[in-house]
Design a protein around this nucleic acid. Sequence first.
DNA 1: CAGTATCCACGTCGATACTG
DNA 2: CAGTATCGACGTGGATACTG
Lengths: 123, 123
Amino acid sequence: MNSPDAFNALCPTRQILDRIADKWTVLLLGLLAGRTMRFNELRRGVDGLSQKVLSQTLKSLERDGLVTRAVYPTVPVTVEYAITDLGRTLAATLEPLRLWAESHMNVIEQARADFDRRQQAAA
Amino acid sequence: MNSPDAFNALCPTRQILDRIADKWTVLLLGLLAGRTMRFNELRRGVDGLSQKVLSQTLKSLERDGLVTRAVYPTVPVTVEYAITDLGRTLAATLEPLRLWAESHMNVIEQARADFDRRQQAAA
DNA sequence: CAGTATCCACGTCGATACTG
DNA sequence: CAGTATCGACGTGGATACTG
């Protein structure tokens, strides 16, 4: 078969899936879907995200055409990150994922506790 | 604030998001949503996935209550992995993501090429 | 403010070998 | 068949320091 097949490592779809199946992408696009934000704003907005990784992630998001980066020659310099139309369609697809996580976390934590208890009992 | 907030690293939602924002989860649940499968079947089904990582991933999927693991005392032993109802709701949320990747890969590859060309020109 | 550069600790992954 | 155990290579990420 020649149709896109995410299960085949050679398929470009897989590269893209690898790319978007990344927690920072989900969170950053989620923020930028709300409004345009500046670098340190994003940094503060996502807890636990280091400056280095934020920088890397934004660069690849820009490369993929999901966000734009605008530099304003103020002093000090102002940089604004905005989501693109393409990025917005992805953010829309990602949103249900975050909602799923939020609404099912209790069930999953329970499942984990049960599993760990069974493991404990078996050992 | 005490409501679920995926942007806060301390929130359990974040752990779950980290967990499901994983490429193997997406692909494995996608396969198991179709039908119950055996270990080596899954291994063959997902290109580039090593035995070790498959084993780890399945274990954590089981721990989270997303798949079940059934052992049949045949010779040699038969192990079947099946998606749970919970897993099915997640798979359903994940499906649009794969479709998005498949339908937008051309645009993204173009964006990457453009970006790289601009970088090249700037350097 | 918005990064880049460097170093290093860490974990993860693939390859290989072995088991019930 | 369905794993586990071990090892070594590798890359990613955090901390820190510096720059326009």
